[in-house]
Amino acid sequence: MFNYEKRLQYPVNIKNPNPALAKVIMSQLGGPDGEAGAALRYLSQRYSAPSREVQAMLTDIGTEELSHMEMVSAIIYQLTRNLTPKQIKEQGFDAYFVDHTTGIYPVSAAGVPFTAAYFQSLGDPIADLNEDLAAEQKARLTYDNILRLVDDPDVREPIKFLREREIVHYQRFGESLRLVTDMLDERNFYAFNPSFDKVKKKK
């Protein structure tokens, strides 16, 4: 089960509204490499993980991603407070505004709604963990791109924190993949699904 704690993982206190920025940061909520996809990816994949260590890793990183969804949502919420119709029009926020006002809705920067098609759950830990490694890199690159577009330190600080987390998660998924392959006979790692096929595991 999940329990809510009434706080953010890292502080978000943004003084100046900036709807143009909100629009690009939105991608890390509901875009192809965003936090919603990350949370659902790991929390879906964990059931077929072949060891408790990897089950724990997917559970704990998936849970952290939920708190990142909340941080990204808080950033967007604060960037879109007290907007005037003039700001909304001039800063290109009008297309989002007409559908959602300033509510938080998971879409990509280009306005494509979130879809589960952004991730997989293959039921094979080697395939899944390779996807997870790629996902962390892609999310890190997206944060890099956001940082290229942002000057406001109130926004940069929490984004820099989120970027760092992608790097740590990449490291941990790398260890998880190694734990999985260490359980297997190295002559045929990649020829079967260790969570489904009957395979000989190392003692």
Binding site: Q9, Y10, E53, A56, M57, D60, I61, E64, V168, H169, R172, E175, S176, L179
Partner: peptide, 13 residues
Amino acid sequence: SFALVEAGLYLDS
């Protein structure tokens, strides 16, 4: 709490 999140992920592996 962050120290525990970070240490917890490390201890998972």
